[in-house]
Design a protein around this nucleic acid. Structure first.
Lengths: 145, 145
DNA sequence: TTAATTTATATCGTTCACGATACAAAAATA
DNA sequence: TATTTTTGTATCGTGAACGATATAAATTAA
């Protein structure tokens, strides 16, 4: 038995588990809105700035087009957004919120507070959260190359 | 535009991204062994203690049976393990490593060091890593209910 | 002992995530 | 201008994740 292969020693396993549980924790708030966590991420990007290219959304979420395209197709099918061919460059596709997609922002604005409430330890110490996010950002920077 | 709905403010998005990138970072080391990251997790559990019930693996990885069962089926198909009906309780299924599954441990023992090398900032400050893991464990404890 | 309930695992359907590949449009090169 | 290369998006196939449901075996209750 190699010590380094023990599950409990693995930072990565914790990260993987925490990420899964976070997604699960969002579900009760997002399901009533008819969206998944990944779709919520797309919407947050578009709420911040509408009419983006597929590639811009892709870059913002650090996801490849082979993940983003089907995701946007499903969201278009749900009438959350529309994808229109760019006139400047016919390869590009412009993603824009529909009325329904825009309206969801109003309903979603309480979601972050609900999630914070599920993670009380985070509320206590702002510098601790900051350090935590710094660590995550550090990892992301190192791995995204 | 609600401030709390900005993507950059979201700890959860960082966690989600870091987790994805970690899994991607494992790939070059695990693919030569013919396994995925999740399969590697199962193997780590079994290398630590062989002959476990499906429910024990499930609990250890905090994954439900509807994830674990198909996973184990694929791994059985790859001749990494076998699943045998328990004689004590015919509902239970015992999961045991095959020779091939056991041999993989030897090949996998370098993987953790390779991953640490990909995350140099972690090597510098052990207390920082510890605090990081504590935060993750804290989140997991709060979310697993 | 029979019937109802609980438990352990499995199946089904949907959505991600992602490597590999395809395809058409644009840009670069000949 | 014709050809090649690059770029932006899409398609395909596979393996997770996971909610919902199913099934058979064990346990409990009647």
């Amino acid at each position: 038995m190699y010590e380094q292969l023990k599950l409990d020693n693995q930072l990565c396993f914790r990260l993987y588990t925490a990420s899964r549980l976070i997604t699960q924790a969002y579900r009760p708030y997002l399901e009533p809105l008819g969206i998944t966590y990944t779709q919520y991420l797309v919407l947050m990007v578009l709420w911040e700035k509408d009419n983006l290219l597929v590639s811009e959304i892709s870059e913002r979420l650090m996801l490849d087009t082979n993940t983003v395209t089907p995701l946007l197709q499903r969201m278009e099918h749900e009438d959350l957004l529309v994808r229109t061919r760019s006139v400047v460059d016919a390869r590009q596709k412009l993603v824009s919120l529909t009325k329904k997609g825009r309206r969801l922002e109003e309903q979603a604005k309480e979601v972050p507070a609900c999630m914070v409430a599920k993670l009380p330890f985070l509320g206590n110490d702002p510098t601790r959260i900051q350090a935590f996010i710094e660590n995550l950002n550090g990892m992301i920077d190192m791995l995204k190359e």
